[in-house]
Design a protein around this nucleic acid. Structure first.
Lengths: 146, 146
DNA sequence: GCGTAGCGTTGCACTATACAACAGGAGGTG
DNA sequence: CACCTCCTGTTGTATAGTGCAACGCTACGC
C-alpha cells in the first residue's frame, strides 16, 4: 500500500465523502428529525443534564445556533428543561417521552444504513473499525468529552 | 468488546460526530474554500472532465445546487469549462491554475488536522484505517464511483 | 448587597440546499 | 433532413442552519 502521507490523504478524502454524502442521505431519509437535531438529542442522551452551552462547545457551534435549534426541539415537544433542578448556572435539558421515541426511531433508520454498508464485514472487523473511529475522534479531547 | 449491534451504533455515533465537528472545524479554519467547494474541486480532480450533473449525483445534491456552487467557483476563477471539448452532452469541467493552488492549500490545512489526530498511530494502523474507511464508502457503488 | 461574568435570546445577514419551471441543445426516429 | 424527446444546466422562490453582535437575566463571589 501507499505511504503514510498517501493514506492520510485518503483518510481525509473518505471522511469528507462520508460527511457530504451522509448529510445528503440523512436529509432525504424519511426521518422526522434532521441530522442536526439528531446530533443534539444524542448529546443530551449521552450527557444527561447537559446545558445549551455544553452542546455548543461540543459541536463547535455558536450559542445562538444551539439556542434556536433547542427552541425548535422544545416546540416540537422532544426536549424540555429539567423542572426540579434549578441549582447552578444554565438550564439542564432532558428528553421527553416523545423525544426518546423520535431519537430511537431516527437512530434505527440511520443504523440500518450503516448496517447495510457493513453487510459483508466480520464481527471482528466491525469491532476494529468502531474502535479506530473512536480513537480517531477522542484524540486529545480536553474537557469536551462528547 | 460489545456486540456487533453496539459496535454498529458506535460507528454511527462517531461518524455523526466526525461530520458535525468536521464541518464546524473547516468552517472556522482560515481556508478560502468552504468544505462544499473543496469537495467539488476534489471530485473534478479525481474525475477529469466531470460535468455538473456528475457532481450532483455523486454527492446526492440537486442539479440547481451544484449549478450555483459551480457558478460561484467560476466567478472565483478556480474552475472553468473545458474550451476545446464540445463533444457530447454537458460541459466538462477543469481546474484553473488558481484552482489547483487553492485546492492544494485547503487540502494541506485539512491534512494537518487529520495528521494531528493520527499523531500516535503507527503506519500500519493508519493504513488499516484508510483501508477500512475506503471499504466502508465503496460498498456497493454502482456507477457513482466517487 | 452589588458587581461581574456566564448563559440564553433575538435581530440581521449569509450560505447551502430543494423543488419547480424553464431554456437550449444532442440524439434518435420518421 | 426535420422533428421530437430527453438530458443538462439555469433561475425564481423558499427553507434550514449558521455566525456575529447586542441585549437581558441570574448565579456567584466578595
Amino acid at each position: 500500500m501507499g505511504s503514510r502521507a498517501t493514506n492520510a490523504s485518503g483518510i481525509l478524502r473518505e471522511l469528507i465523502l462520508i460527511s457530504r454524502r451522509g448529510v445528503a442521505d440523512a436529509r432525504t431519509a424519511a426521518v422526522s428529525l434532521s441530522l442536526t437535531d439528531q446530533s443534539i438529542l444524542g448529546y443530551i442522551v449521552d450527557h444527561p443534564g447537559a446545558r445549551s452551552v455544553d452542546i455548543a462547545t461540543a459541536f463547535r457551534l455558536n450559542r445562538s445556533t444551539v439556542s434556536r435549534q433547542l427552541a425548535n426541539l422544545v416546540r416540537l415537544g422532544v426536549v424540555r428543561e429539567r423542572a426540579v433542578e434549578a441549582s447552578g448556572r444554565g438550564r439542564p435539558l432532558e428528553l421527553t417521552d416523545a423525544g426518546w421515541a423520535a431519537y430511537h426511531e431516527a437512530l434505527g433508520i440511520l443504523r440500518s444504513v450503516v448496517d447495510h454498508r457493513l453487510g459483508d464485514w466480520t464481527d471482528a472487523e466491525v469491532a476494529r473499525f468502531a474502535h479506530d473511529l473512536r480513537r480517531f475522534n477522542t484524540h486529545e479531547e480536553e474537557g469536551t468529552n462528547p
